[in-house]
């Protein structure tokens, strides 16, 4: 699975590179979303779909950031609260709350975010390495970089790295 995903990512980078050539830089499309006033970005090719909040069924004995599971057109997928994962204050779900369904390490998963705003194009050159200290409690490994544009600051996430090795072990081999 892992290799498959890496192959996929390679392919997508190749694709964006091709597109980007006419602009003179490598272009990436990002979906931007908000969490507690901060703006985050995620490669558009990672995102399968964006849906409104649904009824979530709680699953017992899971880490607290696992909100539960939903029925996505007949497929049961786990839902993770990004707020809880990033140790942010919990907030009421409102009509702007969305679930971003993504394929992470070969599995479909949903991530609850406060709001999804737009798809933006940025040049790869604009991505800066993440600052050494992060204030919001977000795990360092999860950040692929920051994008500093004139009037906005985006945190680029790499969800593949969101789960620590321990957590992956918990998921796959808990007995």
């Amino acid at each position: 699975m892992q290799t498959q995903t890496t192959a996929l990512t390679k392919e997508t980078t190749a694709l964006t590179k091709l597109k980007g050539e006419e602009y003179g830089g490598e272009l990436i499309q990002l979906v931007s979303f908000n969490l507690e006033k901060e703006e985050y970005g995620i490669n558009v090719l990672m995102v399968r779909e964006i849906i409104r909040m649904l009824n979530i069924t709680r699953v017992p004995n899971t880490p607290q950031y696992v909100e539960g599971v939903i029925n996505l057109r007949g497929k049961v997928i786990p839902i993770i609260s990004l707020r809880k994962k990033f140790d942010l204050m919990e907030a009421e779900h409102d009509k702007r709350t969305r679930i971003m369904v993504m394929e992470v390490v070969g599995e479909l998963m949903g991530f609850i975010v406060d709001e999804v705003s737009e798809v933006i194009r940025i040049s790869e050159k604009e991505i800066q390495p993440p600052p050494p200290v992060v204030s919001s409690g977000i795990e360092q490994e999860c950040m692929a970089g920051v994008i500093n544009q004139a009037e906005r600051l985006l945190v680029l996430l790499d969800l593949e790295k969101m789960f620590t090795a321990d957590e992956k072990r918990f998921f796959s081999s808990m007995a």
């Binding site: 699953v59 004995n61 049961v76 599995e107 998963m109 796959s172």
Partner: peptide
């Protein structure tokens, strides 16, 4: 029966969904 997927497999006492 629907599988809970790899991430939530092997939860004690839960066999699926």
């Amino acid at each position: 029966i629907k599988s809970l997927g790899k991430f939530l497999a092997n939860l004690p006492g839960i066999g699926g969904s």
